[in-house]
Design a protein around this nucleic acid. Sequence first.
DNA 1: GGCGTTGTTATGCAAGTGTATAAATATTGC
DNA 2: GCAATATTTATACACTTGCATAACAACGCC
Lengths: 215, 215
Amino acid sequence: MAVAARRKFRREGEERRRQDLIEATLDCVAENGLQGATVRAIALRAGVTAGLIRHYFPGKEELLQAAYATIMGRMTDLAKTALATVEEKPRLRLAAFVGASLVPPVIDVRTFSLWASFIGRAGSDPALGVAHRAGYLGFRDEVETLVAEVFADAGRRASEGELRRHAIAINAIIDGLWVEGCLAGDMFASGELAEIGIGAVEAMLGLSLRQGEMA
Amino acid sequence: MAVAARRKFRREGEERRRQDLIEATLDCVAENGLQGATVRAIALRAGVTAGLIRHYFPGKEELLQAAYATIMGRMTDLAKTALATVEEKPRLRLAAFVGASLVPPVIDVRTFSLWASFIGRAGSDPALGVAHRAGYLGFRDEVETLVAEVFADAGRRASEGELRRHAIAINAIIDGLWVEGCLAGDMFASGELAEIGIGAVEAMLGLSLRQGEMA
DNA sequence: GGCGTTGTTATGCAAGTGTATAAATATTGC
DNA sequence: GCAATATTTATACACTTGCATAACAACGCC
């Protein structure tokens, strides 16, 4: 008798399974928004059955939080990688940072979809709002430090307020170009956004940031 | 006998009801994302029962599309209002436009929530992607025209490529500051973002845009 | 190689989903 | 007032959702 055979399976390490489930969740959210992230869809994509989710997470809510933490961490890491350039001179480092923020893998539709899906609820979900602020401020502080170094290197002085405003504006330029690059990357030539971003920052600071034309 | 009384109701004009339903939908989406926009939640907020939705829309999908079209139109209108300043001189008009884009009602958490909720699916939903592009390009063209007028007014010449790059960068500055203002408006003093935005655009164009200090 | 542990599947359930349909009543024209 | 109309409510249905539970089987240990 062909009785419905029970599905074969392998036991995976706990960390591996958790990671797989989180990754599957991110895939679902990226493709169909939070609505698409049902336990069954997630399980299907992770290659397990739905019930297993509750073996690794208290509930779907916690899985989503873990997924959000993961994507936030990943974005932060990307930003840090962009910051950790090998360049020595502050001006080159700033240029490298801006440029790296405006090409793949930072420019990425999937990441953008995830960001938008989660951040859309930052207005109503306090936890999300707080997380965004923390990430943004950390990021902006780094930019501000970088700008301060650039100014020092160029022998220019700037007040705290000026540094703050510059950091806010540079952040905004990067964010704005990032959104456009993610949403409609094909409208721009390869490297064009990076070029525009660096040019804009140069103009804003009144300094050349590239080698060969440095004052 | 206290038999369950049927609910009283009033007949509203067709257009009014449609608008109410759309507005209720936007409220639901803004507060709890697309997930929160269930027919019952929408109906409750609109003060009607769920079945009525299907009397005005073929299905929930169409209601959501109508809601998206509404918010897009509203954002476009706000942008147009910001563009339609009374200023005569191109430089003042550009400054007024940038400034108006960075204060309420353009800066608004609810609008941002709606934008993020819908745009998150622009990567997977072609219709959304196309709509975004159209809106963005229209917007950018306006900025480009404005920049061209500013240059002409200042007696400066710029190639098509330069104009394009300036428009892209100015757009990005506005968008980036807009996002921050919406997400964490309380981190900035009133009018600070507008000030930063105008200052950044001035630096990028190498021109003063305000009265009294014009070259 | 048998056996306990527990990761995993399978099944079931109550609540919520969008939609279809019929009944009821507010409104209009006479 | 009264009948006709179609807006609105009420109810039902099939399906999906997250979660609970029990059966099962893969792996480690002796």
